[in-house]
Amino acid sequence: MADILYIKGFRIDHHAPEYKDSYLSTITSLCHLYDFSFHRQVTFFVGENGTGKSTILEALAVNAGFNPEGGSKNFNFATHNTHSNLYSATRVIKGADYPKDGFFLRAESFYNLASNIDEIGDPIFLEQYGGKSLHEQSHGESFLSLMLNRFRGNGLYILDEPEAALSPSKLMTMLVRINELVHQNSQFIIATHSPMLMAYPDADIYLLSDDEVKKTCYEDTEHYIVMRHFLENPQKMLHYLFHE
């Protein structure tokens, strides 16, 4: 059975004024990105800070109809107009199927999302998020509550660093939930630094760097290599880091 893809790919127009006349043209990884195709229901974008992972996800989310600061297509709150214009220079290629659900989760503006849910003040609406204010839960609990209660399947879920508030055990819970939703015909596009999330089987991992954007194996990611070396011998690694 073929993977369900609600977004099949995207194309960045490097000649568009929104791209070439802005800081976007200085993000070197984007200079190597023209046409991109998705092949799996779970795709990870990884790389160092500043390589454009969040910028790409934001452009995809806005083109898919989501609020730039996060949420479903029904959210329209705005606290800071800081999103880039990459969405204007990006053409999203949609699949044959239309998602029945969807959400754009970005860790940096999750507080604003939780506040907007409280401001709506609709008990029925709140039930979709577990029936309890996300502000009355820990950061990690609220992230999981969102995935466990709000994500319903047959959906497009764009997640920007969802691991930010989660302990290792909660990350495993998130992996289980992602797997459940994938089996319910969902597509995930995720920017992450977490080696645990990247371990999801049959996912595609794309490394963004100054030199290129390339598909890579899990074991070849710097995230996995550094974490493995550290856990195998933390004292040796600390000795090296502290030059002792």
Rank of each mutant, 00 (worst) to 15 (best):
N149M: 08
S133T: 05
H229W: 06
M237L: 05
L146S: 07
L144E: 06
E161R: 00
L86R: 05
P234F: 02
G95L: 09
L181G: 02
F188D: 00
F103P: 00
E108A: 14
F45K: 05
G65C: 10
P123G: 04
E108V: 10
F10E: 09
I189H: 05
S142H: 06
F103W: 08
Y34W: 04
K215C: 11
T90M: 12
H80Q: 10
L86A: 09
N85Q: 11
Q235H: 09
Y19C: 00
Q184H: 10
T192V: 04
F143M: 12
Q184T: 04
L159C: 07
L60W: 13
T26A: 10
G140K: 11
G155H: 07
K8L: 11
G9Q: 11
Y157T: 01
S72H: 01
D13M: 05
L159F: 14
G130A: 13
N112V: 02
H15R: 00
T51V: 14
A165R: 12
D35C: 02
H139N: 15
E48Q: 13
C31K: 11
D160C: 02
G140N: 12
Y98Q: 14
I117H: 00
H183I: 03
V62K: 03
L166N: 09
G65W: 11
L175M: 14
Q184D: 14
F230I: 15
R91N: 04
F125D: 07
A59G: 05
I205P: 10
I7F: 11
K170A: 15
S115F: 00
S54A: 08
K214L: 11
L171F: 09
D210C: 04
S84H: 07
